[in-house]
Amino acid sequence: MKITRKDVEHVALLSRLELGESDVAKFTGQLNAILDYIDVLSKVDTAGVEPTAHVLPLKNVMRADEPRPSLPRELALANAPEQEDGYFKVPRILEG
């Protein structure tokens, strides 16, 4: 077992996910299955193969530094759970 319950709980916390007891057990198993499959891939001899940074055979896709219109503020804020005075309103940040 490479991934323990503790790892799953840790990653869930970092990702702000609340997992039930059964989820933790399920994901621990699934993640280990994925890593086991990676082990199969790891058997391939990759000596002399450059690490892949991107799967697309593209490089240097860029745009000129030219302005384009932004969203009207009403639209930008349309999905905000809460707003105030043109700002997104969010819960307090630091815990006590």
Binding site: E66, P67, R68, S70, F88
Partner: peptide, 15 residues
């Protein structure tokens, strides 16, 4: 392509 201009009204240089 949003502007980087400093001091714009809040949430107007967004996309």
């Amino acid at each position: 392509g949003c502007s980087t201009k400093f001091g714009a009204a809040q949430n107007t240089n967004v996309c």
